[in-house]
Amino acid sequence: MRKFSLLDGLVAPLDRANVDTDAIIPKQFLKSIKRSGFGPNAFDEWRYLDHGEPGMDNSKRPLNKDFVLNQPRYQGAQILLARENFGCGSSREHAPWALDDYGFRVIIAPSYADIFFNNCFKNGLLPIKLAAEKVDVLFKAVEAHNGYKLRVDLERQAITAPDGTEYKFEVDAFRKDCLLNGLDDIGLTLQHVGEIKAFEAKHRAAQPWLFA
């Protein structure tokens, strides 16, 4: 997995609550059997004026100028600022794949749906939970300043704003370690093969029908 430690990134604001994974990557793109290439179709229905289908040349499609990510000032953004319950709905990992492929490395929101939150970490994306008031302050700051950037330091668990304000955030120790070191979950789990086998033997003896 790709490592993540420090990022100085441009921030893009997506000012709505309950952004669901259908919105992040609509279902027609889930037909792909690959993990990559979803970026041009991230937020497809909001981003383009026509109906998107896999295989289209996205560079030729009409853009929805009103959609925030299409504004020139947010091009190249690596940090997505969002509202409550981001990533709700379907468990599709295509959502973090699409955000990642688009170029985002960090998401900042007051809360996330559990499965989406989990899926981000598996793909080197850092979803940060920040209190709603703080997120609100950031929304106002992004609006007010062109080229607004934040520094995200995972090691120190801190976000630094251009005016020097620091926002500390929590992150699970295990997940932090995996991100900082780019560790692959499966490899880590397989270090415990002996324990898994021992558990399995005991479980089989107690509930043999599970293994029939």
Binding site: R35, S90, S91, E93, I115, N118, K122, N123, T189
Partner: peptide
């Protein structure tokens, strides 16, 4: 790998929807 896996909890089972990386993880481990 589907969020509506919660359905199976109706049987007093612990049923989770998971992402594709986790699908691979469960397959392997």
């Amino acid at each position: 790998g589907d969020s509506h896996t919660s359905t199976h909890g109706a049987f007093a089972a612990l049923a989770h929807g998971i992402g594709t990386s986790e699908v691979e993880h469960v397959m392997a481990t």
